[in-house]
Design a protein around this nucleic acid. Structure first.
Lengths: 228, 228
DNA sequence: GAAATAGTGTCTTTGAGACACTATATG
DNA sequence: CATATAGTGTCTCAAAGACACTATTTC
């Protein structure tokens, strides 16, 4: 009646998991086992399981754990990528998420985990990824960069206790630009998100104060961009 | 093998179409003809047609035209709403869009168009909408408010030629707060998005300069929020 | 002490807020 | 003329940038 064609497109979720090692922004990719693009590096994702997944977020989280063994501290919807051309099997709709974790080496020797590894974002151009995953990563990176300018999101790339210097390094790795230490300190103060711990930690010079997230706080959004 | 349950959820698109009449923010709702929630007001949307829709954006646009006869000047993905509970027919996944148009009365007497009308956002609390459409509208409104603080998005609620006063009214209707005329003028200047036309228009006092969008410009994003 | 990193003091710069003032229209 | 809306001039204010200076630490 409305011209509705009852063929439903294939619906999947994909995750762009970011982390920072040594002040370099990395994305986690897994090697595809199945066709199409068998053997190519790709984003960890897959089909939703209506029996297991309460909603799309939990589906994304489950796929991440299943394929990488990691549980991100932050996970957010990015965008839907769709069309007839992006998957040779036919019309497909993929909801992409992006996520942040403190860096951990991926135990890709564990049998239950797919072959997985971190790739520096700057090296991705040399890889041929499955589907439109290059484009998805580019969009995720851009969104993350924007949010890093006006929010404290980058803390999710750090362990529970961290120093201002580490946070500065992480933000700079994300936005690809240096920021002022002073400006960051002002934001840490103004956000009221963190408490200094009892300890300080060696750094090559004067010892650095450790901070941790106050329990149950929301990530602060500022109404001005920094470093832009 | 991975526990994949091959039942695919129902995938739909929904649109939150905003417009401003008389400095009041409105959302377009259509009356549902089919079950469930038959007779309830709901967001214009529906199933994707893999034969007609190149991607989800065009599906959303098609549904808007089909159900309301309107073609928005701006359309953006909002978020996916999903779960077992939101649709009594079972697990569903809906991609919500939000869109902006200059205000036009909806010709709901035209046979090909569903029964449709504008509702002031401030009156929605009194209505019982289908599905989780209240929540979707709330999220769309919030996103629109945020973007209105740091971008020129609200121009898409105006006709091609408009005055600064009209733009001010539209922004204020969206964010629910007065802004400084001066600040807006500075942004119009700085954005370099507009050209003054030859004409001025009556306003009750001194005549107002008309502006129009320069062809092919992108909407400027500022790195500071206004009115916040 | 030299070098390295942490943290502060403070001046500059950018852009928004406030608001008075001018300009031009109508009745 | 009074009143209304358009548009400008300019001071204040908030927060980021720049950058020198102090504070600790290791070697």
């Amino acid at each position: 009646m409305t011209g509705q064609n009852f063929i439903q497109p294939l619906f999947t979720v994909d995750n762009v998991l970011f982390s920072i090692e040594n002040n370099i922004l990395n994305v986690l990719l897994v090697r595809r086992a199945a066709t199409p693009f068998s053997g190519s590096w790709s984003l960890p994702g897959g089909f939703i399981d209506v029996a297991l997944d309460a909603n799309v977020q939990t589906a994304a989280m489950r796929k991440l754990q299943q394929k990488t063994g990691l549980t991100p501290g932050y996970l957010e919807q990015l965008e839907v990528f769709s069309g007839k051309e992006r998957d040779p099997r036919g019309y497909s709709v993929s909801l992409a998420f992006y996520a942040l974790v403190p860096f951990t080496t991926v135990a890709s020797n564990i049998a239950s985990v797919s072959q997985a590894r971190w790739w520096p974002v700057s090296q991705l151009a040399q890889l041929t990824l499955a589907f439109d995953h290059q484009e998805i990563i580019a969009k995720a990176h851009h969104r993350l960069q924007q949010k890093a300018l006006y929010s404290m999101l980058p803390v999710f790339c750090l362990p529970t206790e961290f120093t201002v210097g580490q946070l500065k390094g992480v933000i700079e790795a994300i936005i690809g630009k240096e920021i002022q230490r002073k400006s960051l300190m002002r934001r840490i103060e103004a956000s009221d998100m963190f408490t200094p711990t009892e300890q300080k930690v060696a750094s090559g010079g004067r010892q650095a104060q450790l901070y941790q997230l106050k329990p149950g706080v929301d990530i602060t959004h500022f109404n001005r961009n920094m470093g832009a």
